[in-house]
Amino acid sequence: MFDLNREAREIQSDKDIAWEIYKKSTTDMIGLYTLILCICVIFILPIWVNFDPLTQNVAERLLPPSWSDRGNLHHFLGTDEFGRDFLSRLLIGAQNTTKYAFLACFSSLIIGTSLGLMSAMSRSRTRKGVLHHIFDILFSIPSILIAFITIGILGASLPHAALAIGVSLLPRFIHESYCAAKKELEKEYVRAEISDGSSRLHLTFTTILPNILSTIISNMSQGISIAIIDIAAVGYLGFGAQPPTPELGNMLASGIDIIYVSTSKAIIPGVAMIVLIASIQLVGHGICRVLNTGVADAA
């Protein structure tokens, strides 16, 4: 009994092995810690600390950040042109953008991957063609243009922008999962399973899906970063979140209006966005590396 326990302690679980491989790259670790910090600050901190992004104070407008000469420690990053606290606007704005980006990306990931898998697994040619090519039209239209049509039809607001970006991400997920599943289906162990008589559904969930996971995850990290950039871009043009609501894009856009007076307001939201996106991409890259370790033809 005692021996068994010691043996169990020596044999590492899959999780430990994965964590060992992940730890090898320093940049990926930096990305992971930055991402955890960002998510804590953006999503968990506002639960306890009462940030107020909307209260205006005309007497204290356009204060510079607190580390400069005229700065006031009461407003850590200064105030904007209406005297609203810039730090709380930044946090709530990042929360708004990221929330909708995650929502758009995940819903589009689930729908897109299932459509792609369905078209790869289906036997009839017409069904395959229809499922695979139904969203091809979106592939050829730039994402901002899709957002323009959606906003032209439905009106400008943040959920509509997220809807448009989610729709514009769909063909990417369909196409990638279709190609990956197609490649996997040609391998010999899958053929062996088919000749063993496993059903299509069983094959999809037990064999194909775990094996194309690295493609899906690398697509997901790219998809989230594209969604953040695009939602902020729609906000930048003034068709996303409407003015009193803070959002990274419209904060940047109001930053360029006052760029001659206060330069920090045009820089800080962008820096926040870059840190967020770069850490997401690093983590996605790291997870892909872990999943691909030991796979011969990993791209």
Binding site: S225, I229, A232, A233, Y236, G249, L252, A253, G255, I256, I259, T263, A266, I267, P269, G270, M273, I274, I277, A278, Q281, L282
Partner: peptide, 18 residues
């Protein structure tokens, strides 16, 4: 490559203007 894919174009344009 990493920086270029995570810098939004409108921010870099603003920095260039600045």
């Amino acid at each position: 490559c990493l920086l270029g894919s995570s810098v939004p174009v409108y921010w870099s344009a603003q920095i260039f203007i600045l």
